[in-house]
Simulated assay, not measured.
Amino acid sequence: MTSCGRSRAIITTAELAAPVLALKFRRATSILVASSRKTNPADLASRGLISAQDIPPLWFKGPDFLCLSDDQWPQEFSPQPSEKDDQEVRSKFHQSQVHACTRIVGEGFENLEMAVQSRIESGGLNNVEALHELICEAQLEAFREEFNELQSNKTVSKSSRLNQLSPFLDTFGIIRARGRIGLAEVGYDQKHPIILCPKSPLTILIVEQRHVDHHHPGVNHLMGILRQTYWILRGQELVKKVRLGCRKCQIQVARPANQEMADLPQERLAIGRPPFFHTSVDFFGPLEVLVLRNKIEKRNFVNTRGQPQSMYSDNGTNFVGANNLFVELESKKPEKIKSVRWKFQVPGAPHWGGIHESLVRSAKTAMANVLDQEQSARRHLRDYELRTI
């Protein structure tokens, strides 16, 4: 516990035992609130002290007036200023501190809730008042000339970027767009949205908050949500920028990397070769055919289309067995059996046979209608009819 926390605990105990000490504590707190930073030890924590050697004695001993008698203490701070004084303070705050506040919103806070909560704690405002105050500061930073013209009951100049929006000041001093839906049965914010600059840090925080609260919508969807309350100049560009910087949106819209395709095999680029000189084979089915006695026309691939030089297939047991049979026959009768090079795909990689896999799909699609018509007529194709198809 810090020294401030220990003092607070001690005074709380003293308040129950000695009301006099509690009264003096409240008075000292009120004086410290109104004092300058040089005499208030609570401000030392926000000055960026580098080491313990930089801590002045004020942090350990407190202000000097605590060692004096009560009648020599400074004048106590009044927590209830008059309405005129309050307006003057707010006016000076808007004009002189706007740069610092805008910088704090952009650099010191990660989201809009933190910025609003900080203003609530420092200014004693509720959520709506704190947000309106931040908006006023951001507008005054971006539209100072327009604000002064509207405050003087004048229209903005024709060269202003707000001219087409017919801006006006509401009761809180916020610049709003007049629009043409004043008679619509919608909320006041939707009738007259708040005008914001896209470069303002506060505007970026507002867009980011709406983007996260509505589960990362698209550009047009998010623009519709924002325009129910705000009119952001060049808002679509800002929304796109926020979505591009969102890690979750980057993952959702990410595209797989495009790999450079390798060269085609030499067999597929051969010129002047007969059909089926290089053959890729695969099985599909089963298909039901009608086999009649003594009418089976036995043919094989070699007799019909000639012997291929190379065969490509997967590692099916029937293909591996056929290759073993060719090797065995060639070793027994090399003068009669022509060699056939059988090249197998890599196991577990069906995409290597993409050329025959795509043709199998095309053949299935073309044969589906014919076979369905024949089966609907309760008729099966004969073997030679299936070969013709």
Rank of each mutant, 00 (worst) to 15 (best):
L58E: 02
Q75H: 06
V98F: 14
G108W: 03
E113C: 04
E110L: 07
E76Q: 08
G48L: 03
V89L: 14
I120W: 00
Q53T: 09
N111D: 15
Q95L: 12
S118M: 08
S91I: 07
Q72A: 14
D54A: 15
Q117F: 05
E107K: 10
G106R: 05
V116M: 07
L66A: 03
E113M: 00
G106S: 13
D64F: 03
L66M: 12
A45T: 14
F60K: 03
P74T: 03
F77C: 06
C101V: 15
D54K: 02
S91E: 12
I50E: 15
Q75D: 06
V128G: 12
R47A: 11
V105W: 11
E137Y: 10
G108C: 08
D85M: 13
N126T: 02
S46E: 10
L44C: 02
R103E: 06
C136Y: 02
E76H: 02
W73E: 04
P57T: 09
C67H: 07
L49T: 01
V89T: 11
V98M: 12
P57C: 11
N126R: 04
L58F: 01
L66N: 02
V89I: 15
I104L: 13
Q53G: 11
E88F: 11
D71R: 09
R103Y: 07
D71W: 01
L66E: 05
H99V: 15
Q97V: 12
E121L: 06
S82V: 10
H99I: 07
S96W: 06
G124L: 07
Q95I: 09
K92L: 13
P79R: 14
S69P: 12
D54L: 03
W73T: 04
Q95H: 09
G106E: 07
I135C: 01
I55S: 12
M114V: 06
N126A: 09
S118P: 01
F93D: 06
P74K: 01
V105L: 01
H94K: 08
E107Q: 14
E129I: 02
A138E: 02
R47V: 05
L134Q: 03
T102V: 11
Q95N: 14
P57E: 15
C136M: 09
E110Q: 12
I50N: 12
L134I: 06
S82A: 13
R47Y: 06
F109K: 04
V105D: 04
D86E: 15
D85A: 14
Q80A: 14
Q75W: 01
L68D: 09
E137F: 13
F93M: 05
